[in-house]
Design a protein around this nucleic acid. Structure first.
Lengths: 188, 188
DNA sequence: ACCTGAACACCGTTCAAGT
DNA sequence: ACCTGAACACCGTTCAAGT
């Protein structure tokens, strides 16, 4: 009979990058970015803080990069010019939802951390637009416009920036309204 | 003969909120947000760090609020429907320039800090649009769309997010291109 | 009123040591 | 290989004390 992988002496699963990122995200979502410390993260994982460095040699920097990569999602590919506008609309809504679910990560996305995550997203957006028969140069502008709008609007929402009049805002409607404006402005 | 206000014993100007914010901004611009500490700020002002608390009782929180307020600017008012599009274009370019000049403050703008600063901006944008004969509801959407775009795009630029192809990007042209898209989509 | 000095409860990270 | 413990050089902030 084969030996079980065996819960170890302390009766807990071994550490892994996935478990670390997951626990970190839970702290950020629940308590805010400011309360994410290596010591607290260690506590959550029932481990000394220094054990984390064995899995993330670049330390907290690498941890934060991992959080950013975790929220980034790329648009689904579309065949040809048919439904590119709908595809981008779906992607934008999904990306916004993810950003708002993990609003604590937003400031990291805006900081210099992990440029690769956003570069991949931009490239995917551009590809969808190119397949949708948007000329190269226009596609580049449109990709950055759309990504900029989604990130910027999510930031405004996360802050709960009120209206001038002080009335409550229907953020869903406002986001979708702006999204329509931006998408309508993109034309082959 | 009247006594001079008199450089004091240590031969330095007295502390003031303005001087503190100014020195803080210089540290952020020159060395990054991460290196702005109360102790370093004290050094720059040739004062013990604890002296700062006498002028900013809420401490570092208040200091960061001050930095955000310092970069925020509102659009100039326009009389009637005549040149609202140009007014908004000018404002957007100016706001972007200011954000890029103080890119280190951008993550603070995106965090929950100092909601008042952005609320004022949104209200001003909405006012310009209303005077430009844009109906109330459409003006609200357009204001957030425009502000979201400017902040989001500035964030992308500050990170230097490259294109998919890895080529270099003409950020000025890209920003202005996207701005034209957004402004063209706003109609009475 | 304005600033200082010492102290407190934290940080991230290194490094030698344990198993 | 994986984790621990002690240590180092920092943080923000409080509080009593100086002038």
């Amino acid at each position: 009979m084969v030996r079980q992988p065996a819960i170890n002496a302390q009766n807990r699963a071994p550490l892994s990058i996935e478990r670390i990122i997951e626990a970190a995200l839970q702290i950020v979502d629940g308590q805010g970015l400011g309360r994410l410390t290596m010591r607290r993260l260690g506590d959550a994982l029932e481990v000394e803080a220094m054990a984390i460095y064995h899995h993330l040699p670049r330390g907290k920097e690498q941890l934060l990069d991992g959080l950013v990569a975790h929220v980034a999602i790329a648009p689904a590919e579309t065949r040809g010019a048919a439904g590119w506008r709908e595809a981008l609309r779906d992607w934008a809504r999904g990306y916004r939802a993810r950003l708002l679910d993990h609003a604590g990560v937003l400031p990291l996305l805006v900081t210099r951390r992990n440029p690769a995550a956003l570069a991949t997203t931009t490239a995917s957006l551009q590809e969808v637009l190119r397949l949708g028969a948007i000329p190269e140069a226009a596609a580049a502008v449109a990709a950055h416009t759309l990504l900029g709008y989604v990130i910027g609007h999510a930031a405004l929402e996360a802050r709960g920036t009120p209206d001038g009049a002080g009335e409550t805002v229907d953020w869903d409607a406002r986001f979708n309204g702006g999204l329509d404006l931006v998408l309508a402005a993109i034309n082959p």
